[in-house]
Write a protein that binds this DNA or RNA. Sequence first.
DNA 1: TCTGGGGTCCTAGGACCC
DNA 2: TCTGGGGTCCTAGGACCC
Length: 425
Amino acid sequence: MKAIIDCNNFYCSCERLFNPHLEGKPVVVLSNNDGCIVSRSDEAKKLGVEMAGPYFMAKPLIKKHDITVFSSNYNLYGDLSWRVMETLRVLLGKKNVEVYSVDEAFVDLSIFSPEELPSIAKDIRRTVEQWTGIKVSIGVAPTKVLAKLANRLSKKDKIKTNCVVVLDTDEKIVGALRNTPVSDIWGVGRQYANKLKEWGIYDALQLRNLSEEFARTYFGGVVGARLIRELRGVPSKDMEDELVSKKMIATTRMFGSPVGDIASIKEAVATYTSRAAEKLRRQHGAAKTINVFVVTKEENHNVNYREAMNGKSVTLPNATSFTNELIKPAVDLVDKLFEKGKLYKKAGVTLSGIVPDTSIQGNLFLSETKNCERKLMDMIDNVNFSQRDDILKFAASGTDRNWKMQQNKLSPRYTTRWEELYGIS
DNA sequence: TCTGGGGTCCTAGGACCC
DNA sequence: TCTGGGGTCCTAGGACCC
């Protein structure tokens, strides 16, 4: 049996942890650039605040009900996420925990007997809350897709379920499937849901009864067939290995306000490249391909994203993880993309063609300067990590940064910066 | 005035090879 | 005038996720 453990309203819960007076009160957290609402407390949900809705549209409602608003504080959420995951690893063993996202983890519970599962799940929930202050919901079932469904049900009525639902018999599974619309199944998005509707398939039980063959031809190919098998209780999505390196690393941002000069865009691209290169080095990778894109701000509302976006890529002669070797070609691409007179609202850098950098590190045939550069990169990463973000940066990144995103409601990094440590005042 | 960021997997089709 | 069969690799694009 498998379980998914999911932190309740994660970003909001993190903020509340350090603002206990907000317990029981409506809270929302915004996306980067304070654009959308990405996390809502139950109270805010009840008041009708839309998930993923634009902040400016929700503002009247927020004001009316005096809802507390925070900008995303990824330093804080990242640290608390690590604590939750570490708790799970201590409780269940490292190899049985698969971190799926910042606030979710799949765990393998096959070491326990079926009768033990409800109490085990409750134990996990209690311990995580005790050790980290974060409340979680737990769904237990034979497959990942069914565990996701159980988790969903556990959140639907938190009081009745106490945030734990175990689907361990076929009766329970069938009952749950019958009462779940297909669009609520993990892996069924808007397009697939529409397709199914056309075929007269509305609930998850109907979906499960679709033949695998049919799915393979008309419904998402192998992906659809796998989904149906999972719904039948046949595990078809394995637990993933933790230490898989990313195949693609991206850093993309909206600008704080639209930008029309090429110099600022180059600064932004240089900065994003530095950030992407840091991520690359953290997984000991080196990249061969750089893609840079810019998005214009269109007055015309009907222009879609693809039309506004313009990207170009370059393949390097050798894979590298050195910021200085990546910045130059990335910035050069801006020259090719930039059109004078246009206003831009977003830019991004994607690194791909990623290989392990073992062949680069400490290579005998590499020049002395290369090895020095490697040491310089390590030093920059260490200083930036232990001190303040970006205390050391490349000159190309600029110092004014008038393109920087807006974060007007940012809370302190209570757990990861000495000078911002939580204090009692 | 104003709508995020970062990923994954799969498939089809083109280029190229023997 | 006619024009095989079998493969690999790469890229773009579509779908999904949180």
